[in-house]
Structures are given as C-alpha cells and as structure tokens.
C-alpha cells in the first residue's frame, strides 16, 4: 500500500535554484506550523506518563517523557466516577450514532429520489440550518417532553445534522438511476433497494458520515450540562471540564484541599491521563477520516 502511494506522488522538477530555495523555505514553514498544531497533544501525552513532580517543576517544553510511569492510568481505572463517565460516553456514542445514522440515511435516500414534495422538504431542512428558536425555547421543549435528567435528552433531539444529510444525499444521487430502476423492475421494494443496493455502493461516504457523528457525539458536553442532573449519567467530557477547567476533583473522590505531595501528584496525573482518554478515540479514528476529507467535505460544499 505504502509503496503504491509513494509511486503516485509526482516529482516536481525545479528549473531555477531560486525556486528550490523558496520551496525549501515554504516547506519548513508548513511543517513547523504542523508541529505547532501537534505539540499541545504531545505535551499532554508526555505529561500523562511522566514523573508528576518533574512536570510540575518543568516550565518549558516537554519534548520527551521523563521517568515513565503509568500510575495515572491505573488511578483512572480505579476511579468509579471516571469509569462510569467513560461507559456513559460509550453509551451516548453507540445509541446516538445508530439513531442518527438511521434517520440520516433514510432522509438522504428519500430526498435523493424524485418525489414531488422533495423541493419543499429540502427547503424546510435548509431553513433550519440558518434559523432556530435559540437556546431557551429548545431547553423548554426538551423539558416539556419530560426529558430533563434523562439519558435520551442527549440522543433524541440530535437525529440529523443537515450538513451530513446533504453530503449523503449527494452520494445517493450519484448512484446510476439505471441500477435502481432495474432493481425496482425486478420487484425489489424501496427499503431493499436502499439497503442492499444503494448503501453498499456509497459505503465510503457512509463511513465518513458515521465517523463525523461519532466525533460529534464523543466530544459533546453542553447538552449534558444543560439537561442532566445526576452525576452517574454524565459523559466523560463533562467530568473533564470539572477537573481540567474548574480545577475541581472533589466530585471524583480525589481530595481537593490537601496539598500533600502525593495528593497533588495524583490530581495532576488524573488531569492529564483523563484528557488523553478523552482524546484517544479521536486520535484513533483520525487517520481513517483525514484521508477522506479532501473529497467528502468538498463534494458537500460544492453541491449543496
């Protein structure tokens, strides 16, 4: 695979020396910017496995982990509060993404067919991208539906992101009409055509949209803060907010007041390690998604 990719890269011939120099200078700038983007993640990663005392006293760059220790990750998995929040996050991602995908695929498929009302449906959906009632009416709606402090409040209101739906609809439209027509002539029902014929043909786009939804669901924290009251329903991101931003670890049973060396160390390790855990799924998914960006985002923006 890698060999192939390398062969594909066209080599550029530089006619003038000045062109070569400009190219080198620009390349250095671009890679430096890239490393600047990466550094905060690396810093946190090294801080999570380095000796906490060293990290605390070190005020400069952290280019390499020092006195590697995995104590922090042990602490996380021994901490009920954090483990429950991680499981909660997984629950929200699994059910949220399943729900979103069913709705989005159905909406995108139907809107890609030639239905008389599709023009109106489409306008209706695009309208919601620009106008909304705002935060308070939305909160009251969820509250009237009896979803406050319910796990479903983080799932039910978030079925379709119009942007993702439009990208998927564009992909469905590109399935040749003859394939769909002949399948229908053979007596395949609408659902069957959608699931067994069209979906496999656009599986790359479906994968990307799924990943978008996963990223969104895993990273979401504000609806949880707005709608949930019980701590045992909180997703990981909300707990991270407490320990990283509000600097409050008392709720996960880590002493907040004592300033003894050991407590201080544990608190610091937990901070960095839980941040890494919160980033981990995205860091794992990232290599798969980034390849498809170029096409996915572009197709959507062009044909919307």
């Amino acid at each position: 695979m890698k060999e192939k990719a390398k062969n594909k890269v066209k080599t550029h011939k530089f006619v003038y020396l000045s062109d070569l120099i400009v190219n080198i200078v620009l390349s250095v700038i671009a890679v430096a910017l890239g490393l600047l983007c990466l550094y905060p993640v690396i810093h946190t990663l090294w801080a999570s496995i380095s000796d906490p005392v060293y990290v605390r006293n070190n005020k400069g760059l952290l280019l390499w982990p020092v006195d590697v220790t995995f104590e922090g990750y042990k602490l996380i998995f021994q901490n009920d509060g954090l483990v429950i929040s991680i499981l909660n996050s997984i629950f929200y991602v699994v059910f949220g993404v399943l729900y979103s995908m069913v709705f989005t695929v159905v909406a995108a498929y139907v809107l890609s067919r030639k239905l008389m009302l599709n023009g109106i449906f489409m306008k209706m959906i695009v309208f919601t991208m620009f106008f909304s009632g705002g935060m308070l009416p939305f909160y009251l709606l969820v509250s009237n539906l009896g979803l406050i402090n319910s796990r479903w409040a983080l799932i039910l209101p978030y079925a379709i992101s119009p942007w993702n739906m439009i990208i998927l609809r564009t992909a469905f439209k590109e399935v040749p009409a003859e394939i769909v027509d002949s399948a229908e002539l053979d007596g395949a029902g609408t659902l069957r055509v959608m699931v067994t014929i069209c979906l496999p043909l656009i599986k790359a786009t479906v994968a990307i949209i799924t990943l978008y939804y996963i990223v969104g669901a895993w990273n979401s924290w504000f609806p949880a803060m707005m709608f949930l009251r019980d701590r045992d329903k909180f997703p990981l991101q909300l707990i991270i907010r407490e320990i990283m931003i509000l600097n409050d670890t008392s709720n996960i049973n880590i002493d907040n007041i004592t300033q003894s060396e050991e407590v201080l160390n544990n608190r610091q390790l937990i901070k960095y390690c839980s941040t890494i855990v919160a980033m981990l799924p995205m860091l794992v998914i990232f290599p798969f998604v980034q390849k498809h960006f170029q096409e996915g985002v572009f197709v959507g923006s062009l044909k919307a």
Partner: peptide, 22 residues
C-alpha cells in the same frame, strides 16, 4: 502538513480549553 494541522479540529472543545487552561 495537512495531516498535522487537521488534527486539532477533532479534539473536543472541553479538552482544547483544558489544554489552554493548563
């Protein structure tokens, strides 16, 4: 350069702000 600079957009705002605070 593209791969490296795309990365931060995937990190949740909570974590980004956590890193800023840190």
């Amino acid at each position: 350069a593209q791969i490296l600079t795309y990365l931060p957009v995937f990190i949740s705002l909570v974590v980004v702000c956590g890193i800023i605070v840190d």
